[in-house]
Design a binder for these strands. Structure first.
Length: 290
DNA sequence: CTCCAGGTTGTGT
DNA sequence: ACACAACATGGA
């Protein structure tokens, strides 16, 4: 049989955990737990092997960077494992890697993510690709690329509504209108804090969305996105003693100070394990009067 | 029918 | 500065 193009990963990599921890929205699961991940205008499929996983792609060079293969995760696990609350996350989410996704795609994706659920975010982004993205022929067949900046600049607010972006549509139009290629390039070179304040200038981008873009689109590991889930787990693990309920900005500072340059990894382990727990829970109902 | 989702924005104190 | 309602939409 034909030899597949691609490469194998044998250490610290699990496609399910990496793709389902909310850092990317364009992926699918096929039979036998084969995963497909799409990013920009390329994609790869991931198969289980006796020793690890095989990444099937004609763009090996790109996907090695995408999966952050140069980073030594054993060191990170060792360091973060010292913190009990993260240790359980590492166990549940072993093989999580922080992806390096295209910057512009992350900005648009995480504006859509605000006050939204992951299923819906995925659907909206997929529809956006079908509406405005280039139809690509590759080794697996046909699919739609994520739209380029100039492609999205041509969309109206109405068209964003049409793909299910809801009230974020006007924000998307405003944000995309002011983004330029030069601005995106410059962002790559700026220090984390400066890049963050640049991002926050965009409509629809606040602290949390900016942190996600920094982490997943700019590979800045010294950020800690605080969302509703992290907020809850903070109150559970740390908030008991401090009677004051901390605001998100303070929770963020707390974690960044605690985990430093490993903040991004810690956050992903934490986020994945919270949502795993939630999935196991029975659907709850409110206490009934009796 | 009500509540929630990887929050941000605009308004009022 | 801080609090808080409003914002589309679909699933539970």
């Amino acid at each position: 049989m034909k030899k597949l193009q691609g490469f194998e990963i044998v250490e610290d990599f699990h496609p399910k955990h990496t793709l389902e921890c909310g850092q990317i929205f364009r992926f699918s699961v096929f039979e036998n737990e084969v995963y497909e991940v799409r990013t920009g205008k390329v994609r790869a499929r991931i198969h289980k092997t006796p020793n690890g996983f095989f990444v099937e792609t004609v763009n090996s060079e790109f996907f090695r960077k995408f999966f952050d293969l140069k980073t030594d995760y054993s060191f990170i696990k060792k360091e973060l494992g010292k913190h009990k609350e993260i240790a359980t996350g590492i166990a549940h989410g072993h093989g999580i890697r922080i992806l390096k996704s295209p910057l512009f795609e992350m900005i648009v994706s995480f504006i859509i993510s605000a006050n939204n659920n992951i299923k819906k975010i995925q659907k909206t982004i997929e529809k956006l690709c079908e509406l405005a993205g280039e139809k690509v022929q590759d080794e697996f067949g046909e699919f739609f690329a994520f739209p380029t900046l100039s492609q999205l600049k041509q969309l109206s607010e109405k068209e964003f509504y049409g793909v299910g972006a809801g009230y974020r549509s006007s924000l998307l139009v405003k944000a995309i209108a002011v983004i330029s290629d030069a601005w995106l390039e410059q962002l790559e070179t700026l220090p984390t804090e400066e890049a963050r304040s640049e991002l926050i200038k965009l409509a629809g981008v606040g602290g949390k969305v900016a942190d996600c873009v920094l982490l997943f689109g700019l590979s800045r590991k010294n950020v800690f996105p605080v969302d509703v889930w992290v907020e809850r787990v903070f109150q559970q693990h740390y908030g008991r003693r401090n009677q004051a309920i901390l605001k998100r900005e303070d929770i963020r500072k707390f974690f960044v100070e605690k985990f430093g340059d490993l903040s991004g990894f810690a956050q992903q382990f934490l986020f994945y394990s919270i949502r795993e727990e939630k999935g196991k829970q029975k659907p709850y109902r409110r206490a009934e009067a009796n």
